[in-house]
Simulated assay, not measured.
Amino acid sequence: MKPKSEAELAEMVATAKAPLRIVGGGTRNIAPHLGGAPLSTAGITGVSLYEPGALTLVAAAGTPVSEIDAVLANEGQRLAFEPMDHRGLLGTQGTPTIGGVVAANVSGPRRIQAGAARDSTLGVRFVDGAGRSLKNGGRVMKNVTGYDLVKLMAGSWGTLGVLSEVSLKVQAIPETAGCVLLYGLSEMDAVRALSQALGSPYDVSGAAHAPVGIDGHPVTMVRVEGLEASVSYRTEKLKDLLADTGAEIHIERSPDRLRDGWAWVRDVAVLQGGDRNIWRFSVKPSDAPHLVAELRDKAADIKVMYDWGGGLVWISTARDLDMRPAQLSGHATLVRASDQIRETVPVFQPEQAPIQAISKGLRAEFDPRGILNPGLMG
C-alpha cells in the first residue's frame, strides 16, 4: 500500500483488518522478521512551506531527504542534526525519507552540538491506529497541548502513528570547518581526549573515534565549524589542549576530506559490508571503553566505532550472541542480525517496568487495535 495523500493514508489505516508494517523509503528495515502488510508513506511527498529567513521548513513525510538537502542548500542552509544514511550499514535499497528520519529519530555526529532529530522537529501531522488524522506543534517551539506528540512521535518507529507531515527548524551552513585528528590513541585515552574537547569552550560539532580508521590505524576526530578566523583559532587551541595525550596530531582543513571523513563516521562505514550482526549502544561516554572491553570477552571479533564523544557505540560481530551486558547503564538496539539471533533477542532493549507501563498506555491510546508495527517496540 502506498497512499498519495494523508486522506488516503487515514482511509487505509482505518479499514485495515490486519497488522501493518509502516515504512518510509524502506532504508531502515531493522526488523525484517516482523510481519504485517507494508504501508509506505513514500508517495506522500513535497515541500509545502519553506521560510529561509525564519529557518523553518514543512515537508510531507515521504519527501526524500536528498530533495530537502537540495532545497536547503540553495539557500545556504541544512538539517542541523546530520541524519545518517542506513543503506550501507543495513544493505538496503530505496530512498531515505524525512518522515523515516523523524520516526526513527535519526541523528548523526552533530547531535552533540545541535541536538537530535526530535530537537529540530517543530510539529507533526500523523494518522493514528484508529485512522484519525492528528496534528501537534507547528512552526514555533511552544506547545500547549496535553501531550507533546512531537517528542512522542520522534523515535516511536511508527508504533504510535504514521507520519504524514513534519515541520522542522533548520540552520545556516557555516562558512568553513576544521578537524583535529589524533592518531594512535587507545580507546580509553581517545574517549578521555574527546571528553576534554567537549568540555572545552571551543564549540565542538563532532567527536568520534575509530580503533581501525581508513588507513587501518586508530584515529580520533574532533570537528569545529564556523567563520574562518574562529575555526582557525579553535582548531589550534584544541591541538594545544590535546597535546598532552601523546598522540600524533594533525589539523585537517580540506572541505572534501572533511565532508567524506564525517560521512564515513555518520554512516558507520567501518562496519558496512558482509552479514555481521550490528548493535548500537547509547551509554555514558566514560562507560563506553569498559562496555567494549566486556563485549570483547564475549566476541573477540568485534569491530567498533565511537561517536558522540563515546556516548554512541556501534558494534559488529559474526557471533550469534546476545551482546547486552547484564548491567547496562544505557540502551541497546539490535540493528541488524541473523534469523537465529532475532528469534531470541528483541530489536530494542526491554524497558524498565515503569517505562513499559507508560509505553503500553500510549500505544493503547494511539493504536487501540495494535496494528501499527506490532512487536517492534515491545
Rank of each mutant, 00 (worst) to 15 (best):
P285N: 09
V265E: 09
L79K: 09
P19I: 13
E75Q: 13
D320V: 10
D267A: 11
S167M: 15
T145W: 02
L242H: 06
A208I: 03
A103N: 05
I302S: 01
G99E: 03
A37Q: 14
S359W: 10
E175P: 05
G62N: 05
S200F: 06
H331D: 08
V127T: 13
L134K: 05
G43E: 06
I341V: 15
T95F: 03
R139H: 12
V127G: 03
G378I: 03
K237S: 15
F348C: 05
Y306N: 02
E343L: 15
A263C: 07
S230R: 14
R296S: 05
S195F: 01
L194V: 07
V124D: 03
L241H: 11
G76T: 14
Y147D: 00
G62P: 03
G375D: 08
V162K: 10
L182T: 00
V102P: 02
W279L: 07
P3N: 10
R319E: 14
V144Q: 04
L57T: 04
I341C: 07
D85T: 11
V101D: 01
A10V: 03
M221H: 02
G206R: 01
V127Y: 12
S205H: 05
R125C: 07
I68K: 01
L152W: 08
G261A: 09
S232C: 08
G199N: 13
G213K: 03
S107D: 10
V268T: 12
M84H: 09
K151L: 06
P325I: 12
D189L: 12
S359P: 00
G246W: 10
I214P: 02
A247E: 06
K284I: 13
L55P: 03
M12V: 08
I341K: 03
A130L: 13
L89H: 02
K2C: 12
K284P: 00
G309P: 02
S164V: 00
R276M: 08
T235F: 07
E11Q: 15
M188W: 05
G226C: 08
A73V: 08
G158V: 04
L362R: 10
Y183G: 01
S282T: 14
T317E: 01
D256E: 13
R111S: 10
L55W: 02
G246V: 09
